[in-house]
Design a protein around this nucleic acid. Structure first.
Lengths: 348, 348
DNA sequence: ATGAAAGCGCTAACAG
DNA sequence: CTGTTAGCGCTTTCAT
């Protein structure tokens, strides 16, 4: 045996003087083993530093205990925190996570989707998609999306963007704003935070001012674009609801360079409320997403799907008797939404 | 065949009316194939939506094309960006990444180490370690550390912390500071940024003021601890060098609540310079780590080690002739350091 | 130019 | 209580 490569079951068996099966049994504590055998095997394992090859296990068991997570980039605190929470929730169930950063490129997202399927992950959680990549549709695998709905057949978990958008806007108004603008990444009916914003304004007969800077704008260009958008409406507005905290930071910077004091001349509220940004900008009033709840629920639904799929596979393989299976996790239609909460700072 | 599970090579072969071998050949474009065969196979693949099972491939080929990355948490922008850069660098070489967040818990880091070995990743990059976990030492696998040195035998890639610490401190002094404090996570000779700080001060005969708040302090407690540390030396100091940007943000918040204006009463310089924090706090003067360069170099060294290991394994397996192998990637001793650069804001 | 068969490391029937 | 054997899906000699 090459010393630089990992020992195998056979090595352990040989050293312990028993068969492969026996070793496998002590590893998985299945069936009856004499204490003596157990000890022999255990010491062989220890002395070789043996660790079961999960790849072989996966090949046999048809399951990798791994799920794929696709996000735009964990370099953004929101997705970084989301990834950590998903990882935590999965770890409790013995699963691990393969994180994929699409960087907003459809091409890359497609490649990752193939990679995940090729690696036979047990399921996928997607928190990023370039306006439905068709690959998502004909994927034969448990799938849950976070935040952006893909199709009614795919479970979607998110915070209640609509209500949150309305509440953020109302918070600006009750704070004294008369004309709040919206700064977001893309405008339209699918943008529920925008819908909430418009709803809050129409209740007060205020005309909306919607500014957009695309999500994947290179970081060096963002501030200039934000400045340009805000300058063009500076006379009209006295508050800004930015749909993410980093955009809110850019609004604050704009206000600073234009000599507008916050919140006196300009009120600002952000969105996400990640701990990293709350550390960086503790003064920012923002809407905090319940990231942990979202992650846990997405994981719960996904694992339910995986379980169901396994059952079906077993049934169609083993043939025959159904048994009473009333307690399966039911498929989820429609989005699952969690409430977001406003975190007070001094910018609004 | 169960419709919900992925098709296999055998399915493709059956549909195309050829043998497994042939299908495998067209997939890997090895040997001579008639155009007709190629076409038949290709269309069978397409119509089944077949994707090779990487798990099986890995089992056979004894390589997973996956490397593990261990970091404290990608929820912190520095490690989030590092993860993305490592992923990018690896992708260029056909490797993927398994990200593990240790959350600063030795227990969890140990588990992850086992997981990675169990999953037979081809190598590990570690950017986190609880004061050498012994497991790192007897690991039979290519390993590179980022930022923290583990042992002389393990390559270490980092920014030039010593020089950077000196320069940051000098920047405060040339800006007009007379007594800059250091705020860091743990003090001692292994903290090279601190060493640089002390060096810059001793050149000017200034007595150091070193404040510490442990790295893994829960976020809710941090500000209070920072406040407490700073209050205790408020009379002495007129500047702070914080060894990460988030700590610098906490210093700014302290200054704000104490009515100290920055940079007039208090100069502040941070460390890391991630894009996320630069977006959040564009005014912060900081030392920017060359994250991309670090990631690329770590990957380069690791892939070199993997290549070398494979060669050795082949040699010891196939037995015999060495051949001329002068162009191997040489093992790296001593750390590889990249220069960090100061990014100007208005806080210093 | 194509196929048959062995084997990667492990688990699970199926014997004893 | 323990061993033998047959795969999981793929690559790779070795034949033909």
């Amino acid at each position: 045996m090459n010393p630089r490569s990992e020992p195998t079951l056979a090595d352990v068996a040989a050293l312990a003087g028993v068969s492969l099966t026996t070793v496998s049994r002590v590893l998985n504590s299945r069936g009856y083993l004499s204490q003596e055998t157990k000890d022999k095997v255990a010491s062989a394992i220890a002395s070789l530093g043996y660790r079961p090859n999960q790849v072989a296990r996966a090949l046999h068991g048809m399951r990798t205990q791994t799920i794929g997570l696709i996000v735009p980039t964990v370099a953004l605190p929101f997705f970084g925190e989301l990834a950590v929470e998903v990882e935590n929730a999965l770890a409790e169930h013995g699963y691990r996570i393969l994180i994929c950063n699409s960087l907003g490129k459809a091409e890359r997202e497609r490649e990752y989707l193939n990679l995940l399927v090729g690696n036979r992950v047990d399921g996928i959680i997607s928190g990023a998609h370039n306006e439905d990549l068709e690959e998502y549709h004909d994927i034969r695998m448990p799938l849950v999306t976070i935040d952006r709905a893909l199709s009614p057949a795919v479970p979607n978990v998110r915070c209640d963007n609509h209500a949150a958008g309305r509440e953020a806007t109302e918070r600006l108004l009750t704070g004294g704003a008369r004309r709040p603008a919206l700064l977001t990444s893309s405008s339209g009916p699918q943008n529920l935070r925008e819908t909430g914003y418009r709803e809050a304004l129409s209740a007060k007969k205020i005309t909306p001012v919607v500014l957009t800077v695309p999500f994947h704008t290179p970081v060096e260009q963002r501030q200039a674009m934000v400045d340009e958008r805000l300058d063009s409406v500076a006379e009209l507005i006295d508050a800004v609801f930015a749909t993410d905290d980093l955009a809110a930071a850019e609004v604050l910077e704009w206000a600073r360079t234009r000599g507008l004091s916050v919140p006196e001349h300009l009120r600002v509220i952000g969105f996400d409320g990640t701990s990293a940004i709350r550390r960086a900008l503790p003064g920012l009033t923002t809407v905090r997403q319940p990231i942990e709840a979202i992650a846990r629920e997405a994981v719960r639904i996904l694992l339910g799907q995986i379980e169901t799929a396994r059952r079906q596979r077993r049934r169609s393989a083993g043939g025959g008797q159904d048994g009473a299976l009333g307690n399966e996790v039911r498929p989820v239609y429609g989005p699952v939404e969690f409430p977001a909460t406003i975190v007070e700072g001094w910018t609004a």
